[in-house]
Design a protein around this nucleic acid. Structure first.
Length: 907
RNA sequence: GGGCGAAUAGCUCAGUUGGUUCAGAGCGCCUGCCUUACACGCAGGAAGUCGGGGGUUCGAAUCCCUCUUCGCCCACCA
């Protein structure tokens, strides 16, 4: 009696199941980590997306990866916490809102600071949760009860505490130096925020008149003629023999005819350009250093937004011109005066603002800095001792290099959106008293005078670097903090290794005296087929939600996991979503239909395989169980090693190639026989394997593979798993146990025999193609096993073979005549194929003995190596040990082969 | 200028410590099938001297050297 207990459509419809399932997971609280749970914790903190962000494929890859790991560990019995949230993203968010008010014809200065910040808050409150909602669509199993925002009051308190603590430790200082300045965002940037890009520029060779020198003029080479107006010296290398006579003389800056000294400084590279360098201390970091050494004047000749301006140095014709317009104009003026010697094309690195891509202007200013060396030391140590591991390892070198050469961090931003710097100045005290404070002071504690707060805000990364503990309630010793710090895995892109990851590690050790996580998994970048990074500006992006709409969330997840190996880039074709995402959709559909078939075959009650008498297992049963166990082991190992693609593919193969293509087809005759006993009675009785056993095995295998696949494709697996027999309404796959292999694994020993069955069937199927046999032709064939082993295998599988042969459009009648297959062709002629080849013992003997021979050769080679004194003496001990281990393994293998040959009766 | 990575079938990529199962997968292509789970499917098939060259080894897609091409990161030659 086959009760069709579920009426399922032939095609899986992701849209019908995804949202309701997600709601159930959330309602049942399966994503919520419990503080009082006895389970060992497993913690991932999300790389918080910008509040204004909308989901793109890069975040899709990032978050699906995290979700796979967190779901895996949750099923393995860990108290899994995936902590979500968003970043206020200072410049980025301020830019977005500024653009919006620009459409109203206003600037932030029109609104004023308070009103502008209120406006940003309103914007954030309105649209800020967009990306988090989108994460739910792709199935992210975040603990939404713990969602955080880097500008939450509690979080802000942590940021402020950190600032004041560093201040108290003397690690924060006011620096007067040349920093990266974005003339569009009107703020300072850190070194990391000013990205180098190679630009095809020009090198201008400009003559400066010299008074009383060996020659009447000298020539400097510069890529930025406009900075000439800020020159306060010309420098040469003291060791440069060509220009010795010039040092101490005076050069005249063209156009403004300003006298500047010619000085000697080691920083000048004699090999570059002419050996003469114009020195502009206020607009170049190197020149600033030279300026310090030679006590030069340091005039700024540009406004904050990059226009030329200086009371004496900028002539009227150039005043107020944008720096690039000024460059052209100055070049023209030099040409007119015959002072432009030549212009050469010159490719060089130019810093750009990482938020708006504007060319950064080096600018002398006062900023707050953090001394990084003391913080970097433990973070470097942690990596070297293995307390923190990078995956893939190759990033370790980059990390070490950055840490070793770390530079102080400019943390002040001339923005309004962000954490206001808690530095206060008394305007009454003399000298002015300045201090950092955890609370807003109402008056100067010294003199009771009025107090002013620093107008700037902190770098957005100055709050994100606290993410792993500030989200858990730090600086208070909350239960969450005690339980969920330190965390375990951080999943992110290498781009923010320095911005974020390295700094989190430093903060973790400095403020918690412990690592924030043990493993940093660095995944690749999402690119198009031309290997260009997907981006809005290039228009080569793929909208993950569009993909979910077309193919389902599982399809999106499948491609991002199965399509990318550890640490490599994910190449997707935005112009062909079908090719890119259909495999996942097709696989989900395959699972759906396997489920549909199995469910239709099941009686009310299905036995558990653990209660099944092993003697009731047919060859195919034993084989598929063996495959299932292998898959459990492989998938688990791969996930543990972050080989997510391998884990996914292993399960895919088991589900599709083993379970669906072979096993399901193989048990159909048995199931059919059980369904109609009268028909079965006419058949030869099966040697072993009854329908109930097949049902038990089917359920076990399907249940197992659904569990294994759940982290990757949670929706389809949950939907099907709940339909399996014996499920209670409250059962959820999301918190079901991860499969394990029984400690006492039953001896299945079916590989060899079933491989012979598969081989025989392939042989029969091949008849069609080879002889162009018309479909449905009846083929008579006899499989003539020559050993007991194979005979036993085939006797039990006669129905199976008939059935499987049918899949190639052949009517194979179980084999009665002759020793081969024989088919009647369309024209009435007959063909005959010797099927015995497929299972020919002699052939098998030849194959096996060939293998044995090769193995013997290998063993001989290895033995030679191992007896070679030089090798043993010089190779590292572990290599030698490994070779010995290999030798042992091969000897075992040799024994296995020999046994097989013996059992086949080969000579 | 330094460092790192990649190059395998038409496309996108696997291939873990060199060794039977290694030359693979998905898509695409060719042939035939609506076989009562699935045409988002089934069966069969074609297709690669593993970027070039050299080396180590009994044995190399895998290790070493070198060249070519592409990509990334870092760097104050203006």
């Amino acid at each position: 009696m086959t009760a069709t207990r579920f009426d399922l459509s032939p095609q899986y419809d992701p849209h019908a199941v995804e949202r309701p399932l997600y709601r159930r997971w959330v309602e049942r609280g399966v994503f919520t980590a419990r503080v009082d749970s006895p389970k060992p914790p497993y913690v991932i903190v999300i790389p918080p997306p910008n509040v204004t962000a909308v989901l793109h494929m890069g975040q899709g890859l990032n978050n699906v990866t995290q979700d796979v790991l967190i779901r895996f560990e949750r099923m393995r019995g860990r108290e899994a916490l995936w902590l979500p949230g968003t970043d206020h993203a200072g410049i980025a968010t301020q830019n977005v809102v500024e653009r919006i008010i620009a459409t109203e014809g206003k600037s932030r200065f029109d609104l004023g600071r308070e009103a502008f910040v209120a406006r940003v808050w309103a914007f954030v409150k309105e649209t800020g949760a967009t990306i988090l909602e989108q994460l739910k669509v792709i199935g992210a199993s975040c603990d939404w009860t713990r969602t955080r925002f880097t500008l939450d009051p509690a979080y802000s308190r942590a940021v402020r505490d950190v600032f004041v603590t560093l201040w108290e430790e003397g690690l924060i200082y006011r620096g007067h130096r040349v920093i990266h300045w974005c003339p569009r965002c009107l703020t300072a940037l850190s070194d990391e925020e000013a990205e180098s890009k190679d630009i095809d520029g020009k090198l201008y060779f400009i003559r400066y008149h010299v008074e009383g020198g060996p020659k009447p003029y000298l020539t400097v080479a510069t890529t930025r003629p406009e900075t000439m107006l800020g020159d306060t010296a010309v420098a040469v290398n003291p060791k440069d023999p060509r220009h010795r006579g010039f040092v101490g003389k005076v050069a005249r800056v063209p156009i403004i005819d300003l006298p500047v000294p010619i000085i000697a400084d080691e920083a000048v590279e004699p090999g570059f350009g002419t050996g003469f360098v114009k020195v502009t201390p206020a607009h170049d970091a190197t020149d600033f250093e030279i300026g310090l050494r030679h006590k030069l004047e340091m005039p700024l000749v540009m406004t904050e937004d990059g226009r030329m301006e200086h009371p004496t140095r900028v002539p009227k014709t150039l005043a107020d011109l944008d720096r690039f317009d000024a460059r052209e104009k100055i070049v023209d003026m030099l040409k007119e005066r015959g002072l432009l010697e030549k212009v050469e094309p010159h490719r060089h690195a130019v810093r750009h603002c990482y938020r708006c891509d504007t060319v950064v202007e080096p600018r002398l200013s006062d900023q707050w800095f953090v001394k990084m060396k003391p913080l970097a030391q433990p973070a470097l140590e942690a990596y070297r001792t293995g307390a923190i591991r990078l995956v893939p390892e190759r990033w370790g070198a980059t990390y070490e290099h950055w840490m070793e050469n770390i530079r102080d961090w400019n943390i002040s931003r001339q923005l309004w959106w962000g954490h206001r710097i808690p530095v206060f100045t008394c305007t009454k005290c003399v000298p002015p008293r300045q201090w950092a404070d955890r609370e807003d002071p109402k008056a100067c504690p010294e003199c009771g005078g009025p107090v002013e707060q620093d107008p700037d805000v902190l770098d957005t990364w100055f709050s994100s670097w606290l993410w792993p503990f500030a989200t858990l309630g730090w600086p208070d010793e909350t239960p969450d903090l005690k339980r969920f710090y330190p965390g375990h895995t951080l999943v992110t892109a290498p781009e923010i290794l320095f911005f974020w990851v390295a700094r989190m590690i430093m903060a973790g050790y400095h403020f918690r005296a412990d690592r924030p996580f043990a493993t940093v998994y660095l995944h690749g970048t999402v690119r198009d087929t031309q290997h260009r990074k997907m981006s809005k500006s290039l228009g080569n992006g793929i909208d993950p939600l569009d993909v979910v709409g077309k193919f389902g969330a599982d399809a999106l997840r499948w491609t991002t996991i199965a399509g990318v190996s550890l640490g490599s880039d994910l190449i997707l074709d935005p112009n062909d979503l079908e090719t890119t995402f259909a495999p996942g959709r097709n696989f989900a559909n395959k699972l759906w239909n396997i489920g549909r078939f199995i469910l239709a075959q099941l009686p009310e009650r299905v036995q558990s395989i653990s209660n099944l008498d092993p003697s009731r297992l047919a060859l195919a049963d034993r084989w598929i169980l063996g495959q299932a166990y292998k898959t459990i082991v492989a998938a688990t190992e791969h996930l543990e090693a972050f080989r997510l693609d391998e884990a996914a593919k292993t399960c895919f193969e088991f589900a599709w190639s083993d379970l669906a293509d072979w096993y399901v087809e193989a048990v159909k005759p048995r199931l059919a026989a059980a369904a109609s006993p009268s028909a079965a009675a006419q058949r030869a009785p099966a040697a072993s394997g009854d329908a109930a056993a097949a049902q038990a095995v089917l359920v076990f295998c399907f249940d197992t593979v659904l569990r294994l696949l759940h982290p990757v494709v949670p929706f389809i697996t949950e939907e099907l798993w709940q339909k399996l027999p014996g499920r209670q309404p409250e059962d959820l796959l999301a918190v079901a146990a991860w499969p394990t292999v029984p400690a006492a694994l039953p001896k299945l020993r079916a590989d060899f025999e079933f491989a012979r069955v598969q081989e025989a069937i392939s042989k029969i199927r091949a008849i069609r193609a080879e002889y162009r046999v018309a479909p449905k032709t009846r083929v008579a064939a006899t499989i003539k096993p020559r050993t007991e082993l194979i005979r036993a295998a085939f006797d039990g599988e006669r129905d199976t073979i008939v059935r499987l042969a049918q899949l190639s459009e052949l009517q194979f009648d179980g084999g009665l005549r002759g020793t081969g297959a024989h088919a009647v062709l369309a024209d009435g002629s007959e063909v005959f194929v010797a099927l015995s080849d497929a299972i020919d013992v002699q052939q098998e003997c030849r194959r096996l003995s060939g293998e044995l021979t090769r193995l013997e050769q290998q063993l001989a080679g290895l033995a030679a190596k191992l007896t070679n004194q030089q090798f043993v003496a010089r190779a590292p001990a572990e290599v030698v040990a490994k070779e010995r281990e290999k030798e042992r393994a091969w000897r075992d293998q040799r024994q296995v082969l020999a046994d097989k040959l013996k059992s086949l009766g080969c000579s």
